[in-house]
Each structure stands twice: as C-alpha cells, then as structure tokens.
Design a protein around this nucleic acid. Sequence first.
DNA 1: CCTGTGTATCGTTTATCTACGATTGACGAT
DNA 2: ATCGTCAATCGTAGATAAACGATACACAGG
Lengths: 103, 103
Amino acid sequence: MNEEQLATTAKALAHPARVRIVRLLAAQNECRGHDVFAGLPLAQSTISQHLRVLKDAGVILSHAIGTSMVYCLNKPVLEEFVNALGEIASDAATCDPGQGESR
Amino acid sequence: MNEEQLATTAKALAHPARVRIVRLLAAQNECRGHDVFAGLPLAQSTISQHLRVLKDAGVILSHAIGTSMVYCLNKPVLEEFVNALGEIASDAATCDPGQGESR
DNA sequence: CCTGTGTATCGTTTATCTACGATTGACGAT
DNA sequence: ATCGTCAATCGTAGATAAACGATACACAGG
C-alpha cells in the first residue's frame, strides 16, 4: 500500500464523527441511514457528508433498500489499512530512552 | 481508545508526506533531521511542519543530538492505533453481496 | 394528487491545512 | 567576531474541510 492510499484512508478516519460512524457500522453490521443520523449529534446534512467521505475513500459501502439506505463497513479495505500500518509499526524498533525534549 | 484519540492519530497520518516520514523512520529507526529533509521533495519549513504535526499527535518522538535533531517513531502509539482499528475491523462481518450502487 | 419520509446536494460561513520563502536562534568551526 | 549549518517559527496565500439550513428529489401512503 503506497503513501497516497494510506493517507487517503487515514484521512477518511481523521474525524471523530467518522470514527463514530465506523464504530456504529462495526457494531451493527448493516445499518440503516436513519440509525446513523440518529446516532450522532450533528445535522443530517453534515452526517450525509461524512458518509460520503467514508464512501469515497472506500471505507464503507452502501446500497438502497426500498426508500432508504443501508451502510456497512468495507472490511477488506479497513483490514488492508490496518495490516499496512501494522507492518510499519512492527518494522520499527522501540525508541530509545531520552526522548521527550521539545528543544 | 475513544473516537477523539483515534481521529487524532488518523489525522496525523492523513497526508502522504507524513506517511512517508513515518515509513522513513520505521525503516531507519532513529533518523537525523537532515535525512528527513532530504527524503522528501518539499521545502524544509514544510517538512518541519509535518514533523510537528506528527509529534503533536504523539506519533513520533524527537531529541536533540549535538546541533541537530533525531526523530523516531513512537511505536506504542502506533501500535495502539493499529490494535484499536484492528478490533473494529474484526468486529465487522463481511459485507453482503449487492453493494456498489451509488443511487 | 398532496403529504410525509429518507437522503443527497447546494450555498455559505468559518476554520483548518498546505506550502513556501524569509527570518530567527543556537551552535561549531575558522 | 564571522560564517555556515540545522532546525523551528513567522507571515501569507491558496486550497480544503466542517457545519448548517434550505432545497431538491424519489418514493410510499393516504
């Protein structure tokens, strides 16, 4: 996974509301739009925007069912991201002692 | 890890240049400032800003050595992030068939 | 046909991010 | 003292992002 892709996925997760959405979807697996709208203290239009960001990044999927929408996590995408970062983290040696100085 | 923390770390990783920096540090483990500056096609001041973002988020650590700086990954922070996301991903069931529709 | 429901999109405001050059300050070497 | 190096910070311009209300649209039910 290249830098662009990693950054794109990270960016999608770079807002508390979107993390919350992702958690909601993980917990419920297949979630009605209405439930998402009800699950956050934000305007419907704002949440819709967040959903779009997540979708554009490929983090979630959606399909219409009747008159409403169903959202769910795109598990493979999330997993790839986690794995790529996990590799980076495990490549790194633990950092030395005297660190915290801010100059 | 709460939504805020997850989002904060994700935000730090939400730019290709910063992902690149993180990879550099993972590869070299303890990296001179000069090497970071040389490793990216950006102005020194810009890179310094990116380093600060990463540092503020706790993703990297730094300390002065002589007249220059040394940067390294804050492995535990990265690992926590990866683990938290990994849990979310594994909580989720794989998403159903007919998905891709954009309405 | 009118109405309500569920979502997406538009338009706007305010805030944050990105990038750069220029400057600053600390330090070493000459 | 003067100069060069290293890195952070300042100031600024332009690009994106976040939030909202208002509006639009599709569809279901009466």
